[in-house]
């Protein structure tokens, strides 16, 4: 449908000022809201993520696309059945105890939202118990993402993952880790399910993990 394609193009190009109008027009023309979300917006963000991973675009282009999608979702949300926005699943995210860095964590949260996840952002300096409590308070959580930027907070990341691994709900969730000093090897060593090296890869991997 032309309406869906137009929304797709506007999101991919980051045209936040006009995307809301295009979404409304598509709805008025009879587009299915869920299809508009999935094929018009989330698919557009998939393309944006793929281009980022291929080095064709950079973080700013990804950010403006996500911002455009957010504007479109604002218009779409009243028309969606409860739970359709964020239907990919619920993600709990935070930077681990003793670490105040949030740039990478915020980019990941934004890309996860754009991939259709509902994100519960616990912020920075998050104690391991808080990650566990957040999942207990949100039993439908699918993924927990923990970030650490410094080598000094790698032990806190290890502790957070250990706390999650010991929790009774562990088999129901996936644990993802990231941050500048983190490697696949370290992720394996501490018992995380996945490590990705950038925000776009994280969103892609998260979708695979809950598929």
């Amino acid at each position: 449908m032309a309406g869906i394609q137009e929304v797709y193009d506007l999101v991919a190009k980051g045209k936040a000022k006009v995307v809301a109008g295009a979404v409304q027009e598509a709805l008025d023309a009879g587009c299915d809201p869920t299809e508009l979300l999935n094929k018009g917006m989330i698919s557009a963000m998939d393309e944006v993520g793929a281009k980022f991973k291929a080095g064709e675009i950079f973080v700013p282009e990804m950010l403006v696309a996500a911002r455009a999608m957010k504007k479109g979702v604002e218009v779409l949300k009243p028309h969606l059945a409860t739970g359709v926005a964020g239907a990919a699943g619920k993600v709990v995210i935070g930077t681990v105890a003793g670490d105040l860095h949030d740039i990478g964590k915020n980019l990941v949260a934004m890309m996860l939202e754009s991939a259709g996840f509902e994100v519960i952002d616990l912020g920075v300096d998050v104690a391991k118990e808080k990650f566990v409590e957040a999942v207990e308070a949100n039993p439908d959580t699918k993924i927990v993402c923990c970030s650490a930027l410094l080598t000094t907070t790698m032990p806190a990341l290890k502790d957070a993952v250990a706390a999650l691994n010991e929790a009774s709900f562990r088999s129901q969730i996936k644990v993802m880790v990231g941050g500048a000093p983190i490697t696949q090897e370290f992720a394996d060593e501490i018992g995380a399910d996945a490590y990705t090296e950038d925000a776009a890869s994280c969103a892609q991997r998260a979708k695979e993990l809950v598929a």
């Binding site: 080095g55 675009i57 950079f58 973080v59 700013p60 282009e61 990478g104 500048a180 090296e197 950038d198």
Partner: peptide, 12 residues
């Protein structure tokens, strides 16, 4: 940049 990429396009 980050450890894998410049933060912005080289032309930017």
């Amino acid at each position: 940049g980050s450890k894998n990429s410049l933060f912005v396009n080289p032309d930017t």
